[in-house]
């Protein structure tokens, strides 16, 4: 088994949920719960998900300028992440397909984690 990071990317930097109706948010919630429940039952959740606020700062290299974030060179923004355990990259990728961000044209980045030296 190995650990992986799922990064949830919001396309264009906006979460559709900011303008969604209560009914739509509730439907989305149901989808998220179904997905995380599947991951939990399969013992895949390593560390619970962490949602991020869209505000933030970016510290740049060299002169260490601080600008208002989030990281703005990409047109998409990381909205949150979760750490999972899976057999290999393929399984981790397969499991990520249930993620509701994909329905809104968002993306999941699946990255293997380097094992830390003990």
């Amino acid at each position: 088994m190995a650990d992986f990071l799922y990064l949830f990317w919001n396309k264009g930097g906006v979460s559709r949920m900011d303008t969604a109706s209560p009914e739509e948010i509730q439907k989305m919630m149901q989808k998220w719960m179904a997905w995380t429940e599947t991951l939990k039952k399969g013992g895949h959740i390593k560390e619970g998900g962490v949602p991020l606020q869209s505000a933030g700062k970016v510290v740049h290299g060299g002169r260490k300028n601080v600008t208002d974030g989030p990281y703005a060179e990409a047109k998409d923004v990381v909205g949150g992440f979760i750490l999972v355990t899976a057999k290999d990259l393929d399984e981790a990728t397969e499991l990520s397909k249930g993620c509701p961000v994909l329905e809104g044209d968002g993306m999941v980045e699946v990255r293997p984690i380097r094992s830390l030296p003990a």
Partner: peptide
């Protein structure tokens, strides 16, 4: 504020449980 609250629920409940 209500919108914000519901979005917050969406972001936390699926991971922390209802």
């Amino acid at each position: 504020v209500v919108q914000e609250t519901l979005v917050k629920a969406l972001e936390t409940w699926p991971f922390n449980g209802l």
